[in-house]
């Protein structure tokens, strides 16, 4: 199975919401769609789902033209939506039936998910009677109950308390183990790093970075240096050509051009006999890559 998004373009008059976006998922896992607000993520998702038509380009699933209404797909939208006045069970059966599930089959699947997400007591309540977090769980059930092969999660953890966020993460891990294809859009970079293998970073409709997250990080190399020691190392850093990017109680951070530059600072600290508490040379985090790429693009 594979999902291929090929050169899709979406324009609203003069404004280009998505410009020549391409990516491909050839194996199960989590694919991240990242970007600032208004970058074009939701438009891309809507095009993938067939809610919006693209001006050009194509979306294919297993090599065939893709239409969400005809495919087993689960979708958790960024803006949650349930019928406020209808009973939870009624609407979930309805959503499942729209996905082609027979009533007994839907009830069986829903029973499993009500138990799994600890919301059994709400099945006969109206949506308006539920807290925001519980409504979010119901929406996740609506997305997962039909056992879809492709799952699109738009900001799945936003607004959740830590306990429920962990429950959602566990469920996502379970879906990964079931070899599901998952597209996740989130502003919570640690979550993306935790789950995603491949990413696309979008800005103003354009793709600014695309690829495997580990390879992207390796491509940057270990260029982030954090040093914490007793005594001022500003002059030592300057001698090595380093300017602090951040100074916190946890240490001073620098962008280094090479590992050699970082080691030269370490040598100078050792020569001075300053007590070293922390020395960390690492690859950039996704958050740092994101800010660098999107920030640079926005400055241009």
């Amino acid at each position: 199975m594979s999902l291929k998004v090929d050169s899709i373009v979406k324009k609203y008059g003069e404004y280009t919401a998505v410009n020549n976006m391409s990516f491909e998922m050839t194996k199960p896992g989590v694919f991240a769609l990242l970007g600032t607000n208004g970058a074009g993520k939701t438009t891309t998702i809507r095009i993938i789902l067939g809610m919006l038509s693209s001006d050009s380009g194509s979306v294919t699933w297993n090599g065939k033209s893709f239409l969400a209404a005809n495919e087993p797909i689960g979708y958790l939208a960024e803006e949650r939506g349930l019928y406020p006045k209808y009973k939870i069970m009624d609407q979930l059966i309805y959503f499942a039936s729209l996905k082609g599930m027979k009533r007994p089959e839907a009830i069986k699947a829903l029973d499993y998910w009500f138990d799994r997400l600890n919301v059994n007591e709400y099945r006969n309540k109206r949506a308006e009677q539920l807290s925001k977090g519980n409504q979010q769980k119901i929406q996740l059930i609506a997305a997962l109950a039909p056992n879809p092969e492709l799952i699109i999660l738009d900001e799945p953890l936003s607004g959740l308390d830590p306990v429920n966020a962990e429950l959602f993460k566990t469920v996502i891990r379970e879906e990964i183990k079931k070899d599901k294809f998952i597209i996740m859009s989130s502003h919570q970079m640690p979550t993306i790093e935790e789950f995603c293998s491949d990413i696309v970073i979008m800005n103003k409709g354009n793709t600014v970075l695309h690829g495997n997250l580990n390879e992207i990080k390796k491509g940057y190399g270990r260029v982030k240096l954090t040093v914490k020691c007793e005594g001022d190392i500003t002059s030592l850093a300057a001698q090595c050509g380093l300017i602090a990017t951040e100074d916190t109680p946890n240490g001073v951070s620098y962008n280094v051009s090479s590992e050699q530059q970082a080691h030269s600072l370490l040598n100078k600290i050792m020569e001075q006999g300053l007590p070293l508490i922390r020395y960390e040379l690492r690859e950039p985090t996704l958050n740092e890559i994101f800010i660098e790429k999107v920030g640079a693009d926005n400055e241009n």
Partner: peptide
């Protein structure tokens, strides 16, 4: 809700 319906 419409957004969810339109996936089906």
């Amino acid at each position: 809700v419409m957004e969810l319906l339109l996936t089906s």
